[in-house]
Amino acid sequence: MLARFARCYGSGPGHLLLMLAGFAFVVSVVATMKPTSLWNPNSWWQSIAVWFVVAVIAHDLIAFPVYALADRILARSTRRIAPAGLSPINYVRLPAMAAALIFLVFLPGIIEQGGPAYEAATGQTQEPFLARWLWLTASFFAVSAVAYGVRVLLVRRRGAG
């Protein structure tokens, strides 16, 4: 019965339940907020709905092809240099994704957008945001490089022993 369901649906019943729960959550959020709160009639470009559509289009048409191409180039280039059975690709993917996510979350601070409001609220400037993001990114890649180095040493010791 489950195999037949999976063949028709394309995945298991757990996936269907999770998707239905996600859609129910979105409907409940929109119903609670009211659709009018997603639209700003005074300046349409500041509407949440417009920003959401632009973000989806920008991701699907610009960002996804760029990082898919970068990932494919990384995967091809690491095949030649990696020890047998130990690809470094996930040791590059993880810190890159973490750095990109943190960059997106803190982008207004990094580009110092809303500086006067931030300074009025906190008493601090946004000047250190870029340096802190760069240090955090460097530390992500450093920790990942150390983890990969340890993994390579363990693989080599098992092979020699």
Rank of each mutant, 00 (worst) to 15 (best):
A138W: 02
P35H: 04
A84L: 09
A82P: 01
D60I: 00
A98G: 09
A131L: 14
E127T: 15
P41C: 12
V143Y: 06
T78N: 03
A49C: 10
A98K: 07
L136A: 11
A138T: 06
S139N: 15
G123W: 02
A49G: 03
S28Y: 02
T122H: 07
W39S: 03
S28L: 04
L86W: 02
I102M: 14
P65Q: 09
P35L: 11
N90A: 08
G114Y: 11
N90W: 05
W51G: 15
A120V: 01
P95D: 01
I57N: 01
I89E: 08
A138E: 06
A96C: 08
F52P: 00
I111G: 05
A75T: 10
V27Q: 02
P35R: 05
A117N: 11
R76G: 04
R79A: 07
F141H: 05
A75H: 10
A117F: 12
S43W: 10
N42L: 11
P88W: 01
Y91P: 00
I62P: 00
T122R: 03
G114N: 13
P128S: 06
W44L: 12
T32P: 00
A68W: 09
L134M: 14
I57H: 04
R79S: 04
T32G: 02
F103T: 08
M97Y: 14
L61D: 03
Y67K: 03
P83I: 08
I89A: 10
I111F: 12
A131P: 01
L94A: 10
L130M: 13
A99F: 07
L101W: 13
V143F: 12
L61G: 09
Y118D: 06
A84S: 11
P41R: 10
T122F: 08
E119Q: 15
V50I: 15
W39M: 02
W45M: 06
D71E: 11
A142Y: 03
A138G: 15
D60E: 10
W51C: 08
W45A: 03
P65Y: 06
L74D: 07
A96P: 01
A58Q: 09
I48P: 00
G114K: 11
V30N: 05
P41H: 06
G115C: 06
L94W: 09
I111M: 11
Q124L: 14
I48E: 14
T36H: 03
V143K: 02
P41T: 12
K34F: 00
L101V: 11
G114H: 08
T122W: 07
A131G: 07
A82C: 11
L101P: 01
E112S: 13
N42K: 15
P108N: 13
